[in-house]
Design a protein around this nucleic acid. Structure first.
Lengths: 224, 224
DNA sequence: GTCTATAGTCGGATAGAC
DNA sequence: GTCTATCCGACTATAGAC
């Protein structure tokens, strides 16, 4: 005798939705405030559910049923808002890359290259900690994007890299930094912040404090 | 009218096997020398195929058909040598973790904490570059392991972390290092090397040279 | 130990009612 | 815009011949 599938799936979805609304579901940790521009609310719920699922289990291990369930919907409802699972990934990845670049551009301020570098590394690191679920999708799910979508985010990645490379170049020109391998050191500085997305969880400390620590470490790596 | 499936699949497998034997298949880059202890040869071909596939596409995106095909076999033959796809992942992950720890233990030598740290970071970084396919599986596929298998590799990961923490502690005690946040700095040093697995490809330079650069950067991060 | 064939399950995506 | 129901392909793993 088969279980009453309809009742079970409805109950599961209601439970999931309730937990979401009450905000106590530990797996649904993405702040909805970040995605306020995504309308309507159902599309936003799907997107935040996808971010959490992709970050937790990876893109390939995440099912559309899982995403829909986190948003309190049936699997079919997803396709009203997004044409495919990959498109959902792309929207997250594109937004995340742009957000990371914007964080860097806003942080590139200071009287000396050293001040600028500290500000950049601090902000970039804190962003990866604060938004570690989005960052995980940004940094570790590139291979799941379609070739066209990958090309689009790749241009943003180059801009991010250039932002760090420029301040190192300026610091070398001013004699403040001693860098023998510019591309290698650029990559190392970026790398330090990016890897935060791999291991960070909220119980591992305050994103701002981590940013300050990493700004210090990065500065020491390059100073003359 | 259906295509002749038998002939097609046999042809594909023969082609795959031929490329493997000739060693010109860019997707089959894992050196068989590393896995000489895996016997018989068929099991070793499956394992190296799995390493390459997992590193390239991720565990979840890799099919048993893909692995078998890289080894020049039918999907069913895989189960003669391994009871499941997850077991294949575990064998790779366990071996990789042990290899990484062994590299650190062998490298922990030198007259001063600074020499030891440089040696450790240099070797750990070079290993992640040299064996970037294995390293990618080790660092990015933990979530796909069964709880029991994950627990087993987690103990090795703690030993790896301790190896770095110890030399930092010794350097602080000797007054050679100025480290304010020991756990944070330990993680940062490890992080720098681990992230190499994410971006490294052979065209990005010599593993040994990268090791030297990173040893220098890590030393500068902590020196008094 | 390898094969062909397939069982049994699940996934992305669609159809059509409301 | 959401649902239920389902298609259809692909997946892991197994059965049984050789």
């Amino acid at each position: 005798m088969r279980p009453p599938r309809n009742l079970r799936s409805v109950a599961k979805r209601l439970l999931s939705f309730t937990r979401l609304v009450q905000g106590v579901n530990v797996s649904a940790v993405t702040s909805p405030l970040v995605w306020e521009h995504v309308q309507p609310a159902a599309a936003r719920r799907l997107l935040t559910g996808a971010v959490d699922a992709f970050a937790e289990r990876g893109y390939q291990a995440t099912t559309t049923r899982d995403i829909a369930s986190r948003a309190g919907m049936s699997p079919a409802a997803l396709y009203v808002h997004y044409p495919s699972k990959e498109r959902l990934l792309f929207e997250i990845s594109l937004y995340g890359h742009n957000a990371a670049l914007e964080v860097l551009r806003s942080a590139d301020a200071g009287d000396t290259p050293a001040d600028r570098l500290r500000s950049l590394v601090s902000a970039f690191t804190a962003w990866h900690a604060q938004h570690h679920t989005i960052a995980r999708v940004v940094q570790y799910e590139l291979a799941a994007l379609s070739p066209e979508h990958l090309a689009e985010v790749a241009t943003i990645r180059r801009a991010i890299s250039l932002q760090i490379e420029q301040v190192l170049t300026d610091g070398m020109a001013a004699g403040d930094f001693a860098v023998t391998d510019l591309p290698g050191t650029t990559l190392a500085v970026l790398s330090l912040s990016i890897d935060v997305a791999r291991w960070y969880t909220p119980h591992r400390g305050d994103p701002e404090a981590l940013g300050k620590l990493y700004a210090d470490l990065a500065h020491r790596m390059v100073q003359a």
